[in-house]
Design a protein around this nucleic acid. Structure first.
Lengths: 231, 231
DNA sequence: CGATGATTGAATCGCATGTTTGACATTGCC
DNA sequence: GGCAATGTCAAACATGCGATTCAATCATCG
């Protein structure tokens, strides 16, 4: 499907690394070509020589970063599908296949945990238009495949509802990644930044409950008339 | 607490309106002073004359936009608290107090639905640092107050867990607002943009289930060994 | 009216941006 | 060695930016 060669060394690689760090830290718009070449210790012209333009470099940073994550997502989903072939898989496992690659790929990266997650968030939050076409295509495929698996796991959720709930899921995760620090700054009882592992399992529980909503075998209302809340 | 007068007319008002439209549509960084003054049909110098700087104008746009929303949030929460004084309110009502003001304030605005929500999202997603101090303070107060109400409504959820779940909630909503169009473009079975009312009630159900997760009176596992899922 | 202070307008400042240029250095291959 | 191809470099270019200047205009009120 793909045929990109990400350079292993040389100043092209140095530029990609520097750009990745800076984009993750400050955001795509806030980083100039000169910032990048300064950090990479190359000449300003190097960016345009190697990539043609600043935008092309930006796209290549996103690709190099996203492609392995998305490939692992699909691989993990396939494993889950095989394991539960035909039967409905637990939604937790599907969500896990979607978010876990973030935790595994972070270790293969030069980026710190914090920067790695910020970059993920930024790719969605800032650059969602202007994404390289092949990345957008890959994403479309992923949402498609995961939606199919969720649909099988949650036959009682109407497809229309399911689409929305998946959006809420993706959004909650993205936002969480990008804005961990800010949200914690706004919460007065802010406990220190926790490990990614803990965040992921918390998130999976939260999202799984949201996805399953309404499919439980009739829970007795624990308190008050919440069954009659009027929407 | 506050003592801002938002101008009712004149070119100061025209600048605020123009800036609001442009910021919502293109994002804060992508809009220049010249773009704003062109749309407002004023001179370039007007921005610096009336606001001192581009940044100050940006802050005033955010304030004029966010303050009424946040005030309505607090007012609604207070109503809910009074209604259930002492007792635990249904989480749906608390979430509603948080998200409903978006639907009511959109009608008082000059902005289209789409631009209105995009602006909300952008204030969080792009400008979360650099927010005017008084807005940040207001937000902190809101998260505080809502957290307290949620805690009372969900006594079985550990405070630490609750903080996280609220983050997921806020993030899911923000992201949804900002990226409705993109997510729908990525979902192949994209049905047309639905009304805000429908989105809100879908979201409230999703988030309420996530918040309540683990507090239900022991649901019989509907399928598979999901109780032993290993995190 | 005329004076005073608020507002506008055209021009310009200094600066940072992405990109291009052309000379120079390095590399790899015959 | 010779000679392309490839890569590097300092310098400059064109553009757009936020901000400022200062004279012209306007509104308000004595």
């Amino acid at each position: 499907m793909r045929a990109i060669n990400f350079p292993e060394s040389g100043s092209k690689r140095k530029l990609l690394d520097a750009a990745e760090h800076l984009f993750a830290d400050k955001g795509f718009e806030a980083v100039s070509v000169r910032d990048i070449t300064a950090l990479a210790k190359t000449n300003v012209a190097a960016v345009n020589y190697h990539f043609g333009s600043r935008e092309a470099l930006l796209g290549m940073v996103m690709s190099r970063y996203m492609v392995p994550i998305n490939e692992e997502r699909l691989a993990r989903l396939e494993t889950v599908d095989r394991k539960w072939s035909g039967k409905a898989a637990p939604v937790e496992e599907i969500i896990d296949a979607f978010v876990r690659p973030l935790a595994t790929q972070v270790r293969k990266s030069d980026l710190s945990e914090r920067l790695f997650y910020k970059l993920t968030g930024r790719i969605f939050a800032e650059q969602a238009d202007g994404m390289p076409p092949q990345i957008e295509e890959q994403l479309r495929q992923i949402i498609d495949r995961f939606t199919r698996s969720f649909a099988k796991a949650l036959p009682l959720v109407a497809p229309e509802d399911l689409t929305w709930r998946i959006h809420f899921l993706v959004g909650g995760m993205i936002y969480q990644l990008t804005h961990q620090d800010i949200l914690h700054r706004l919460s007065s009882g802010a406990s220190g930044t926790p490990t990614m592992e803990a965040t992921l399992s918390r998130f999976i529980r939260f999202a799984a409950a949201g996805l399953r909503e309404g499919t439980e075998p009739m829970e007795p209302a624990p308190k008050g008339p919440q069954a009659t809340f009027d929407f």
